[in-house]
Design a protein around this nucleic acid. Structure first.
Length: 986
DNA sequence: GAGCACTGC
């Protein structure tokens, strides 16, 4: 009979030769399953059910051999014994005492089996305790949240003040030029290579008309680019610029100097400049004579070969609404709230909609933004009596602000105080009470509620809004809700989505009917470029100016991919406007992206001064998250930055990719919110048709799923491969998540949730982070670990590094360094900030982002509250950082790297990795490292690294590491050891 | 010596 270890080795070897994989937990899973099955047939069937192995030919043979090899005696006895134990576990309470009597002669299988069952019992007891505590907890949330909201508002005001002080714009011409030059060079090289390829490959092939045209475009673009480059070099000699008006500027050198001074001006300069701008704009209004005299100059501004040719190709249809005016007029706003409600597009459908909801359990609602579905439908349901008998209506939103603002509006419409009948529930802020029946919440929040109420028993209706956005949480909700709906026939499910994909939702929910509500949108004319653009940034700038001088009034929205591009584009635009001076009307250039200080963000909402035009240069944030009034023109280069995840390496990367058609149309739609608009796409109609994906890949397929898997397991969903996903994630992603959870001890060898896993699921952080928090109890340092966890949760935006104070900022950062690594640096930053009384002034002085710190504080407070829930006590290590580092290692032993002759390599996958230059350990080379995350940018970088000792790995994860693989092959271990012993002796 | 879109619990 094979020993357990021998059997396991045998299975691993077999697995390797049969399937080409050899995972320890797979082997254990197979042995465990074989051991529990009464017959070989049952075993094969079970493996088939998991759907993880291809059980044809050799694999099936292997399964049979394995079943035979598992000790016969055990096979016959175990299931009966296990079943008996399970029954006893449920029925008897004095089981524990019987266990202690177990003879020592029991073999390893029996021991693990006993431990497993004991753990399951503990887990269920823990879950029950949590449920009970939730029940007992009485809330007085309303007052608390009001107070909190007030404090929040105060904090924001203070922060805006700080941000304003810190805001000092400056020029970065050099880096910008280098960036653009490099980009242009690369594009041109690409194009030339492509053309050369085509000529070589298809030179003598008959081309279709279309292909010929394409080729001609490409050649023309190449020639233009060459000419342009040549011209540019010529211009460099002349020290002029393409849009430069030489005679004007040369005549006014003083003006240029003025502008430079303004740029580096003191705080308050912005305000003055803005006022000047308004004055300037006002003065432009005098008479038509001015305007007329400017006309011919436009021709000079944009010479023919420098403009971009657009062709109008299609039109995004507006929704016809002849009777109702599209925007509430002044008079309308003064009318009663009820009249406004009646004017919404959804109103005429009220009865029909309620009938459809009554007749069908699941209804897909297709409606554009502005149809009133989000605010009205829950109210209709309320009026119809769906909230009687204490039942609630949930409406989920993908974003926090949306949940808050919609709830506030509905409360106003219903004439109740926010938090009473109508409330919202988002992370860090629960504005609901016992009386709340209409509950707006973020999708992630409803997902969390499944943990305490898996059947959503207190809800009569669940409405999933903005379903087309396909956020990770929405996608998981679909599967869960579909399941709940099956055994709760009285639960109504509404899925609200924009026109996209409603058919798919319908199919997913067993052909649920689709109810269409017209929106309120204006038509948008779509224009494409005639030829592809080599440098889209340059093309953007030219197009903006082109729109500015040739098109009627209306603000412009430009979509770029990130902060760097936005800054570059804004500078180019401002630069050119300055050179053109009074020859063109004023153009206000405003950037917007998530990391921009709040007061700068607020500027995009200020109304445009008369006579001027606003151009907002934005990231994806303007696609869904915020709406800017007055946008008539949209400029879309067709790119976005997207996160992707490689499950094989566990590495995330952020890359610029062409956006999808859906995304392009969403962007175009932004032009038609107040009037008929125009969208200029900086790519050809052909590219739109043939090169863009139909829809964006749903998030669930682009991200790591550790906490999702943990959550599903906690909800009792064991068979993830068969979970009803609208779009299933890659198989490898699920497998890696399972493997990691197994390594972390969240799942046992049969893939069942353990007590520790159940606790981890309670914490709203990634599994490794929650493991670290749980482990902090053992090392008595939960206070410190909470801080580290909170700081790690805010995305690398702790240190602020303004371009003009790089040296100061770097010095400030280095001052926080502590030996040991970045985790301790983060701890240090937070501790000092807390000692300053959470001061924003302190942040400003130390080049730390106040906004991020405030978020870290929120996270820390939430985690601290949850610590009690997972039954971990608060304790401090009192400066003994070894304990903190060990606790971190207990969560992150999966993420380790060791120094080899050829640099760092990850311990398990032997992948070459590098310390990120921002790390405190960048200039040191510790032998053993632990990293928080691995990101692929220009190289495979480890971000947030911590120095560890290899012996700790054996201490915290003996199941995962073998002493042998932690030996240092090159280290001169023996002499060192001897030396040490002697030292000790002496 | 790099350079992080956007959400959310």
């Amino acid at each position: 009979m094979a020993t357990p270890a021998g059997l396991e080795r045998w299975v691993q070897d077999e697995l390797h030769s049969v399937l080409g994989l050899s995972e320890r937990h797979v082997a254990q899973f197979l042995i465990g399953t074989a051991q529990r099955c009464v017959s070989a047939e049952e075993f094969v069937q079970r493996l088939r059910d998991t759907d993880t192995l291809d059980l044809s030919g050799p694999a099936c043979d292997f399964a049979l051999r394995l079943w035979n090899k598992v000790p016969r005696k055990a096979v016959v006895e175990k299931p009966a014994r296990a079943a008996e134990r399970e029954a006893r576990a449920l029925l008897e309470k004095n089981r524990g005492s019987k266990q202690t009597e177990k003879p020592e002669s029991e073999d390893e299988w029996e021991r693990t089996e006993r431990e497993r069952l004991q753990d399951l019992e503990e887990r269920d007891a823990f879950a029950e305790r949590v449920r009970q505590r939730d029940k007992d907890r009485t809330r007085n949330v309303l007052e608390r949240s009001d107070k909190k909201a007030y404090e929040e508002a105060q904090k924001r005001l203070r922060m805006a003040e700080e941000d304003r002080k810190a805001m000092v714009p400056e020029l970065r011409k050099k880096s910008r030029r280098e960036y653009l030059a490099k980009r242009e060079r690369e594009k041109l090289e690409d194009l030339e290579a492509e053309l050369a390829d085509e000529e070589f490959l298809f030179g003598d092939v008959e081309l279709s008309r279309h292909e010929r045209r394409e080729l001609k475009y490409k050649r023309r673009v190449r020639d233009l680019a060459r000419e342009y480059r040549a011209a540019g070099e010529q211009e460099k000699l002349e020290a002029t610029n393409r849009y430069h008006m030489p005679e004007e500027t040369r005549g006014q050198p003083a003006r240029a100097v003025d502008l430079v001074e303004e740029e580096s001006g003191a705080p308050g300069e912005e305000q003055r400049r803005w006022e000047e701008a308004r004055l300037g704009a006002a003065s432009l209004k005098f008479g038509a004579r001015d305007a007329a005299s400017q006309e011919p100059k436009y021709q000079l501004v944009l010479e023919e070969e420098e403009t971009i040719e657009f062709v109008r190709a299609t039109q995004l249809q507006g929704d016809e609404e002849p009777s109702a005016p599209s925007l509430p007029t002044q008079a309308q706003q003064k009318e009663s709230i009820q009249a406004v409600r009646r004017s919404l597009p959804v109103f005429p459908f009220r009865e029909e909609l309620l009938a459809a909801i009554a007749n069908h359990q699941v209804l897909i609602i297709e409606g554009e933004t502005g149809s009133g579905k989000t605010t009205q439908i829950p109210q209709y349901l309320f009026e119809e009596g769906y909230t009687k008998k204490g039942m609630k209506i949930a409406c989920t939103q993908p974003r926090r602000v949306a949940a808050m603002s919609v709830a506030a509006r509905v409360a106003r419409e219903m004439g109740v105080k926010l938090g009473n009948e109508v409330g919202y529930s988002i992370r860090f802020e629960d504005c609901t009470s016992e009386r709340t029946v209409l509950r707006y919440m973020t999708d992630g929040m409803l997902l969390r509620e499944f943990l305490s109420e898996p059947d959503l028993a207190s809800y009569s209706v669940v409405m999933v809004d903005e379903a087309h956005e396909r956020t990770l949480h929405t996608d998981i909700l679909f599967g869960l809700i579909k399941d709940v709906a099956r055994f709760r026939p009285e639960l109504k499910v509404l899925v609200a989505s924009a026109t996209l994909d409603t058919a798919r939702f319908s199919t997913f929910f067993d052909d649920a009917p689709v109810f269409r509500i017209p929106g309120r949108r204006f038509p948008v004319d779509i224009f494409y470029t005639k030829a592809p653009e080599a440098d889209y940034l340059e093309a953007c700038v030219v197009s903006v100016l082109q729109i500015h001088v040739t098109q009627p009034p209306g603000d412009i929205l430009v979509f770029l991919t990130g902060q760097e591009e936005i800054e570059a584009a804004c500078e180019m635009l401002q630069d050119r406007c300055r050179r053109l001076g009074s020859k063109i009307r004023e153009l206000l250039v405003l950037p917007i992206y998530a990391n921009l200080p709040s007061d700068m963000q607020a500027r995009i909402f200020q109304s445009t001064p008369p006579g001027a035009r606003k151009v907002v240069v934005a990231t994806n944030i303007a696609e869904t998250s915020l709406t800017i009034e007055g946008i008539i023109y949209v400029l879309d280069p067709g790119f976005c930055k997207q996160k992707s995840y490689n499950p094989r390496t566990g590495m995330e990367s952020l890359t610029v990719t062409p956006c999808s058609k859906a995304s392009a149309n969403q962007r175009a739609g932004r032009a038609g919110r107040v009037a008929a608009g125009k969208c200029f796409r900086l790519y050809t109609a052909w590219a739109y048709q043939h090169e863009l994906e139909e829809t964006t890949v749903p998030e669930i397929q682009r991200t790591s799923l550790g906490n999702v898997v943990l959550l599903l397991k906690s909800l009792g969903i064991h068979d993830l491969m068969h979970f009803d996903f609208l779009d299933p994630p890659p198989y490898e992603t699920l497998l890696l998540a399972l493997e990691q959870l197994y390594a972390l001890g969240a799942l046992n060898h049969l893939g069942e949730l353990t007590t520790s896993g159940r606790k981890m699921a309670e914490l709203p952080v990634d599994p490794m982070l929650s493991k670290m928090i749980l482990a902090s109890e053992k090392y008595s340092c939960s206070e410190e670990i909470l801080t580290v966890a909170a700081m790690l949760s805010v995305n690398n935006s702790i240190f602020y590094r303004p371009k003009d104070k790089v040296v100061h900022a770097d010095n400030a950062r280095v001052n926080f360094f502590l030996p040991g690594g970045d985790h301790l640096v983060l701890l240090n930053v937070y501790t000092q900030w807390a000692e300053s009384g959470y001061s924003s002034q302190w942040c400003y002085e130390n080049f730390v982002q106040f906004r991020s710190m405030r978020r870290a504080r929120d996270v820390r407070e939430q985690l601290e509250g949850l610590l009690e829930r997972v039954e971990v006590g608060l304790s401090s290590c009192q400066g003994d950082y070894i304990r903190v580092r060990k606790a971190i290692t207990a969560g992150y032993f999966y993420h380790t790297a060791r120094l080899t002759r050829s640099g760092y390599r990850t311990v398990k996958q032997q992948q070459t990795v590098f310390i990120h230059p921002n790390s405190s350990l960048f200039e040191e080379q510790p032998r053993w490292l632990l990293y928080h995350e691995l990101v692929l940018t220009t190289k495979e970088f480890m971000r947030q690294v911590l120095e560890i000792e290899s012996s700790w790995l054996l201490e915290v994860a003996p199941h995962y590491y073998k002493a042998k693989e932690l030996e240092d092959p090159h280290a001169k271990k023996m002499p060192k050891k001897i030396g040490k012993t002697r030292e000790e002796l002496g």
